[in-house]
Simulated assay, not measured.
Amino acid sequence: MQPADHPRIADARIGVLIVNLGSPDAPEASVVKRYLKEFLSDRRVVEIPALLWQPILRGIILNTRPAKSAALYASIWDRERGDSPLRVITGDQAGLLQAALPDVTVDFAMRYGNPSIPERLAALKAAGCTRILVMPLYPQYSAATTATVVDKVGAVLKDMRWQPALRVLPPYHDDPLYISALAQDARAEMAALDFTPDVVVASFHGMPERTLHLGDPYHCHAQKTARLLREALGVGEAGFRTAFQSRFGKAEWLKPYLDKTLQSLPGEGIRKVAVIAPGFSADCIETLEEIAIQGRETFFHAGGTHFAYLRCLNAGTAGMQMLSGLAARELAGWRESGH
């Protein structure tokens, strides 16, 4: 029995924290500048020595890019809900995952921006969570995504006297739950189109090519996801392409590039395409603007006639069944113990 003056200790609970990349709080240049400063200062994201990179970042990029990026964010901002699509969708995913797992406490955070990982881990700890499953929503592992989430969580725990036990969702690039959800959603979306695609293009976020040679498994994970998805869809190799988008700077990135692929397809007689983005768990600026707007314009300008962007799994039925299944699997043993 606790003494009367003993500090209150919340009943032990299990927490789940889903994490995605992040978004600025508003589509305004000053706000985007703050977000980009945090994002592009991460040594996992830009692996250039800080003495060389920071003058470029602070002197050039943060004085030129924020206004351009703010305009792009404004073009896809969810005006009805007053937030970025990524944050809206991730919040919806957390709410539905909470409904599916009522015996645990579910929350969400962004690696960059708000709600932050330190803030939400502190909230879970204050709610009595002594065991926490962190779920980076990156199917394919990369040091610039999954690893930096783990880095940030570790930095937060470093300052805690009473640390919770921790589990981290591993990459799920080839998990049957994931491949099945992708295929189910893609089939439904393509069935609703008013045309039959000549080719399906799977677009993944790009990474500098040097990361592959340094041992990052991202390229291999992406290629395996693409192959398994193609097979699940029953599409032959001639009717499926894999590409990488969002390259930045002058260095070589993983190829083939999405924009170059879309430019070249009409010249091959391929004028009807559907683009899917399996590496993104929620629609964001890279999918809604770079693919759905820029990609469409690029393809039509090159002579294409029909273009469709197939949305991410988001908080749809197939995607939530997958997330619930992955979480339940990773929580095995903890939930049965009752705390």
Rank of each mutant, 00 (worst) to 15 (best):
E28D: 08
R111H: 13
P24T: 04
A144Q: 11
R335V: 13
A183L: 07
Y218L: 01
R335A: 11
L182K: 04
A226D: 10
P85D: 14
L57G: 08
V199T: 08
A126D: 06
V275W: 00
C312Q: 08
P55A: 06
Y141R: 02
L96M: 14
R230K: 07
P266M: 04
V201M: 08
A74I: 08
P24C: 01
D83N: 10
D159E: 06
A226K: 02
E38I: 03
E330N: 03
A12V: 08
A100C: 15
F240E: 05
D216W: 01
V16D: 09
L258D: 02
C220E: 13
G59N: 01
R167H: 14
C220A: 12
E289M: 05
L124Y: 06
R120L: 12
E209F: 01
E268I: 09
R111Y: 11
D194T: 09
R87V: 15
A122C: 03
L57H: 07
L97H: 11
G239Y: 08
D259K: 10
R329D: 15
Q2C: 13
P102F: 08
S75A: 04
R58G: 13
G279F: 05
P197F: 10
E297H: 01
D83Q: 14
F299S: 03
T196L: 15
V46K: 08
A127V: 01
R65F: 06
K158T: 15
F244V: 03
T64I: 04
G236V: 15
I76T: 04
T287F: 11
V31R: 00
R111L: 14
W334N: 07
V46W: 05
A277C: 12
L313Y: 10
C129V: 01
G215Y: 02
S203W: 05
P66V: 01
P171N: 06
L96F: 14
A12F: 09
A243M: 02
L214M: 05
I76C: 06
N314E: 10
G215S: 00
D159R: 04
T317W: 10
